[in-house]
Structure formats: structure tokens, C-alpha cells
Design a protein around this nucleic acid. Structure first.
Length: 281
DNA sequence: ACGAGATCCTGTCAGC
DNA sequence: TGCTGACAGGATCTCG
């Protein structure tokens, strides 16, 4: 599931290859993938030049100079569960160009391989927006701070006086952007906080530790090019490596690496959550 | 303000 | 072998 480190890895990889290139052709094979309708999307993206690729939360952002618009446009891509935006190479994903799960195909100047949007579960969406439209998009406007930019005090304020469970707040993109199930569970384990702890009951000191551990696990995961557990791949189609360093995610029933206790699996905020009953309180 | 549950979607896997 | 049901989860919605 692409979360902040995975989207960051894809953005960096795509930026190296796509920046300054012009999009020559737009092929929409699965119209559901384009939230605003295929016609407007194609009109805006065709002929546009990519000026840069970035990220905000879990959103992948391609900045465009488009002949269809006087002002810059942004191509926003939310990968949700199984979405991938990548350039197939001979070794990786070349066969996916003709996959029934490839919903958008972009041809760029001076690139043999097309840029593919591939998404088995069809939850991902692409939007080509003006900056005004982006600013007016409720999801965008409501995004919380970036976890690698928010300072300790700002982070602690997210939880202060709240009755919700600490993991539910971590997953809420309006409170803090870019965290999903993997990095919520991993950071809570490292900070010694149960996922179902009421946020208001967690001490300020412990929340400061969560801030440090969250930033640390995100940086480690970015350095490892993200976690590949099912469909996620980097922009060039390679697997990430952080899945080999999970301490709790996906390990329910196994022994805790720190104390040997059996890791418990519960549901919090509708998500499977794994934690150590001895190390996390 | 919060939580629980349903929704969307399909590949994978356990169980019979 | 082949079927069935559970499961995975990000965002959004409704209901309590």
C-alpha cells in the first residue's frame, strides 16, 4: 500500500526521467481512473510539458505547463491500494502495457517506454487540475501537516485532548498527511504506544517519542525505497526493501523481536493492527 | 466529536 | 480439482 515513503520514492524516480519532457499522447483505457472525465483530462494533459514531480501526503503530483491553459496545471495521482505509476523496462513490467488493469497510458517525447497507470483494485484516481481547482479540492485543502516537516510541539497538539484512539488520528489525513497502516503500526511499536490507546491518555513525553520514531521510520523506509508487500513498485518497476524490516506489521501471532511475547492482532479504526502487549502500553 | 460499519474492487489463500 | 468465503485496505459516506 503506497504510503508516504513509497510515494516519495516514486516521485523522485519519476522526476529524474520525466522532468522537462512533453506528453505527446494520452490514452485512457479505463475511464473510471480519471475522476473528471476522459475528455477534459485528455485535453489538458495532451501536449503538456512536465516541469517537475513531487508529493504531498500520499498524493503524487506532476506539475505541467499545458498549451490548453495559461496557468500551470497539476496532475494529481492517488494510488490508493494497488495503483502504480511507472515506466516499464525490459526487465520489469514490460508485459503490463497490455494488461487489463492498465487504465491510463501516456507517451512522452524521447522515451521509448510509455508512462503507465496500472491499478488492479481500481481505487486510484488521476486528476488534471488548475491551481485554483486544486486549492478548492476538499481533500487537498484539508490535508494535515507533513510528518517530516511538523515539529514536536505541532505533532503533540494533534493528539492533545482528543478522545479518539491514537492510531485513528495517525491514519486521519486531515490530522497528519501520508501515514497509512504500515507506518502507523511500526511507529507505534517503536514508541511503545498501543494503537488503541485513547490519544488524550498518552503522555506528552510519549507523544514526543512517537514524533521522533515516526520520522525515523519514514526516513529509513525512504532510504530503502519503500515497502513492497503486494503491488507497490518504484517508478522503474523495482521492489522496495523496507518490508524486510517490519517489526510488527503483518506479524500477528509471531514473537516480539524485543521481548519474545506473542504479537497481538486487533482492529482499530477498521484496520488490522498488530502490537506487542508487553512493549506497548 | 467520535466510532462503527458499509462501500468500492479483485487477487490470493485457507478450508472443505 | 473446484468452489466458497474471508481478507487486504484509503477515503468517504451514513447512522448512532
Amino acid at each position: 500500500m503506497p504510503e508516504l515513503p513509497e510515494v516519495e520514492t516514486i516521485a523522485r524516480g519519476l522526476n529524474r526521467v520525466l522532468a522537462t519532457r512533453r506528453i505527446l499522447e494520452v490514452h485512457i483505457l479505463g475511464p473510471h481512473a480519471v475522476g473528471q472525465g476522459a475528455k477534459l483530462f485528455t485535453q489538458r494533459v495532451s501536449g503538456a510539458r512536465v516541469t517537475g514531480v513531487g508529493r504531498r501526503g500520499k498524493l503524487l503530483l506532476l506539475w505541467l505547463d499545458s498549451p490548453a491553459s495559461n496557468a500551470p496545471l497539476v496532475l494529481s495521482v492517488h494510488l490508493r491500494m494497488t495503483g502504480r505509476l511507472f515506466l516499464p523496462t525490459r526487465g520489469t513490467g514490460a508485459d503490463l502495457e497490455h494488461s487489463p488493469h492498465t487504465h491510463v497510458l501516456l507517451r512522452l517525447e524521447d522515451l521509448d517506454a510509455p508512462l503507465l497507470f496500472h491499478d488492479v483494485r481500481k481505487f486510484g484516481r488521476l486528476l488534471a487540475l488548475t491551481e485554483e481547482e486544486l486549492a478548492a479540492w476538499p481533500f487537498w485543502a484539508g490535508l494535515g501537516p507533513e510528518p517530516l516537516e511538523v515539529d514536536s510541539d505541532g505533532f503533540v497538539d494533534i493528539f492533545k485532548g482528543r478522545r479518539g484512539r491514537v492510531k485513528a488520528l495517525l491514519l486521519d489525513q486531515k490530522r497528519i498527511a501520508g501515514i497509512g497502516n504500515i507506518y502507523a503500526d511500526e511507529s507505534l511499536f517503536r514508541a511503545g504506544i498501543r494503537p488503541d490507546a485513547p490519544a488524550g491518555n498518552v503522555s506528552r513525553q510519549r507523544l514526543r517519542r512517537l514524533h521522533r520514531e515516526l520520522q525515523e521510520v519514514l526516513r529509513e523506509a525512504i532510504d530503502a525505497c519503500g515497502s513492497s508487500i503486494s503491488d507497490y513498485r518504484t517508478a522503474s518497476g523495482d521492489a522496495g526493501a523496507f518490508q524486510n524490516r517490519f517489526r510488527v506489521y503483518g506479524r500477528g501471532g509471531e514473537e516480539c523481536q524485543l521481548c519474545g511475547a506473542t504479537l497481538r492482532k486487533i482492529t482499530v479504526a477498521g484496520r488490522t493492527s498488530v502490537f506487542c502487549p508487553k512493549c506497548q502500553s
